[in-house]
Simulated scan of single mutants.
Amino acid sequence: MKVAILVREETMKRCTGKGCLNAFFQKKDAFAGYKDDVELITFSHADGDIDHKIETMIKNGVDVVHLSTCMRGKAANYEVLAKRLSEHFDVVGYTHGSEEGKGQKTIIIKKAAK
């Protein structure tokens, strides 16, 4: 299983990524169901040329994109981005902490059928 984590660019200016990365490497919170064959392919912010990022993730065989918990809590485009990504990947709309969001519900979408 190949995983990408996309975070909010504004948050990355002050965040070390510790919460997302700890959850991934310790297989807890959003990553609790993953087996030993999970590989982190991308850890990037979601701004910029998203189409290029999607193409690169496809080329690198990404199966699942996790939108960081900060995306769920603060990104105005959270739902739109999740739907766009689900055209190519399964999408899990958080990384660490509770699956239940405080402001927005967590989006979990299986890749859209073609």
Rank of each mutant, 00 (worst) to 15 (best):
R72G: 08
G17H: 08
I50P: 01
I54N: 02
V65K: 00
Q26F: 15
G17I: 08
E10R: 15
V65N: 02
K13R: 14
V91G: 01
K83P: 03
E10Y: 13
D37K: 15
I54F: 02
N60Q: 14
N60E: 14
T42V: 13
A75I: 09
Y78M: 04
G17A: 06
F89G: 06
R84D: 04
A75D: 09
I50N: 01
K74F: 14
M57R: 07
N77I: 05
V65F: 02
A32V: 11
D29W: 11
K27D: 11
T16H: 04
L67K: 00
K13I: 07
N77D: 06
N22A: 13
A23R: 08
Q26T: 15
D47V: 09
H66R: 02
G61P: 13
C20S: 13
V64C: 06
E39M: 05
G33C: 05
F43N: 04
K28L: 03
F43V: 07
I50D: 06
K74D: 08
N77M: 02
K28G: 01
T56I: 09
K59N: 14
E39P: 04
V92L: 02
S44A: 11
L81H: 00
L81P: 00
A30T: 01
A76Q: 08
T56V: 09
C70H: 10
E87M: 11
K53R: 11
K35V: 11
R72H: 05
M57I: 06
G48K: 05
H45S: 09
R84F: 06
D29Y: 14
C15S: 15
F31Y: 10
C15T: 07
H52S: 14
G73W: 01
K83F: 02
H45G: 03
G19P: 06
I54A: 06
D49W: 07
S44P: 00
K28S: 07
D29V: 11
F25K: 11
R84M: 07
N22Q: 15
V91Y: 00
M57G: 00
F43D: 02
F43R: 08
V64N: 00
H45Q: 03
T11G: 05
L21Y: 10
L40W: 03
Q26L: 15
C20G: 10
A76V: 11
V91S: 01
E87S: 09
H52Q: 13
H52P: 00
V91P: 01
D63M: 10
L67M: 01
E10I: 12
N60S: 11
E9M: 09
F43H: 09
H66I: 02
C15V: 09
K59L: 13
Q26H: 15
F31K: 04
H88R: 12
E87N: 13
G33A: 08
S44I: 04
F25H: 12
I58W: 08
Y78F: 09
D51G: 07
K74A: 14
V64G: 00
V38T: 12
T42F: 10
L67D: 00
F24M: 04
I50W: 03
G73I: 08
G33L: 04
A32Y: 10
T16K: 14
A32F: 07
G73A: 14
M71S: 05
I58R: 15
K13P: 05
K74M: 14
R14A: 11
S44Q: 10
S86Q: 05
G19S: 14
K28V: 01
K59A: 15
L67H: 00
E87V: 10
T42E: 08
K59G: 12
V80W: 02
K83C: 03
